[in-house]
Write a protein that binds this DNA or RNA. Structure first.
Lengths: 101, 101
DNA sequence: TTATCATATGATAAAGTTATCATATCATAA
DNA sequence: TTATGATATGATAACTTTATCATATGATAA
């Protein structure tokens, strides 16, 4: 059922560390795990665990490159998603105290 | 910080009952609480609690109409969001066993 | 007013998620 | 092959969210 997919997808996005990883890949392009660890200051195991969840939802892809795995953001989905959220905030939440911190 | 908003928004969407309410309002248009209760078979308190969270994120609005509150979906945000998720599933998750149930 | 229908709120046990250990596996070069 | 650098996995305590009671508040008509 499609509703299950929505739930899984939104759950995957509803996490600080995964959002940090997404933003890192969005700003800095494809990177391997240890670069993501360096760039985000997250633990290696945390990065791997969370990349796995992003991967399961196809929000990222990877290609093997020697010992390394280069992870890439699925920009086709993620870019418009973030754009949509931004414009939602700008339209509907600008004077919303709960968002201004 | 904007990342906090993303987290709150996705968390709000990442819930079965709220998705049920969203889908109900998407299919059937604006309705008051007890109609939503009838239409979705959810508990009244659950519906109220969850509408409150949807409201806090501006995913729904309401207008008072006598004793009733007519809740409306924020289609500007929700429709393209669901469309985006659908096309993501169709593009990237069609052969994905985890989604086919 | 007060009664009543309609909706919201508070509290909290149960269920689900995350963080983070230790450890395993994988790819390659020596 | 074995050593090493890179990444993944498993387990579980700590934390967060949800479900669901009982109860409170709101709007209106009588």
């Amino acid at each position: 059922m499609i509703k299950e997919s929505y739930k899984r997808f939104f759950r995957t996005l509803a996490n600080e560390k995964r959002l940090i990883i997404i933003h890192f890949l969005a700003r800095r392009g494809p990177h391997n795990v240890s670069s993501i660890v360096q760039g985000t200051r997250l633990e290696q195991t945390a990065v791997s665990h969370n990349l796995k969840r992003l991967l399961a939802c196809h929000f990222v892809f990877f290609r093997q490159h020697g010992k390394k795995r280069i992870y890439t953001l699925n920009t086709k989905t993620i870019k418009p998603l973030l754009t949509l959220m931004d414009s939602h905030v700008n339209r509907f939440c600008t004077r919303c105290h709960i968002n201004n911190k």
